[in-house]
């Protein structure tokens, strides 16, 4: 939470990248306390690791500092407060934290927990659901990642070539 607020203030983009890495690591710790160890794994590896590396790579290719804002932050603040108030109003109907009788807990989850030992025989229920019950979902995810990879390659493929050509024109 504090790291997020620091990100708002920091002018140096390098500091921003580092703070977002720290934020991911802290959120991974939170996931462990909320029993989601697999998610914590992924968040620590992907959020704190790969994202930070990507950020640093981008910073190396672009600018290190951001310019201070030129227009006033009143309208964004207003928008943010209205949205936040609406969302908090929406949570008033939600079940209490950790309630075992909440609607999210009583329909699908007991089925998965009871049946996956016989049907899939994998100790980790999350793995069983990810790879088997929701296998098509994971296939779609792989497709998304592949598309993103192709997109990044297409966007950046000419970079070195164009740089070299520019260097020749300059000299």
């Amino acid at each position: 939470m504090l790291t997020a607020l620091a990100v708002v203030r920091a002018q140096s983009l390098f500091a921003t990248a580092m703070l977002s890495g720290a934020f991911s690591l802290l959120s991974a710790l939170l996931f462990v306390t909320l029993d989601a160890v697999d998610v914590a794994f992924t968040e620590a590896a992907v959020g704190a690791g790969i994202s930070t590396v990507l950020m640093l790579g981008t910073l190396a290719l672009t600018a290190r500092f951001e310019r201070p804002a030129t227009h006033s932050p009143v309208i964004p603040l207003f928008v943010v407060f209205v949205t936040g108030a609406a969302l908090i109003y929406g949570t008033l109907d939600m079940p209490n934290f950790g309630d075992p009788n909440a609607p999210a807990q009583v329909h699908l989850a007991p089925d998965f927990i009871q049946n996956s030992p016989h049907e899939i025989d994998v100790p980790n229920i999350v793995t069983a659901i990810l790879a088997s019950y929701r296998g098509f979902d994971t296939l779609g995810e792989v497709a998304v990642v592949f598309t993103a990879g192709v997109g990044v390659l297409l966007l950046l493929s000419g970079l070195r070539h164009r740089r070299r050509r520019q260097g020749k024109e300059d000299s």
Binding site: T42, L130, V152
Partner: peptide, 29 residues
């Protein structure tokens, strides 16, 4: 046991999130 279904959904979402982040950063470059 805690509910494993949100964990699965969020695992997928994290990976997709990194894909979008990398695409956005490539656009910025």
């Amino acid at each position: 046991y805690s509910n494993p279904l949100p964990h699965v959904l969020i695992l997928t979402a994290i990976v997709v999130g990194v894909a979008t982040t990398s695409l956005g950063l490539a656009l910025a470059v």
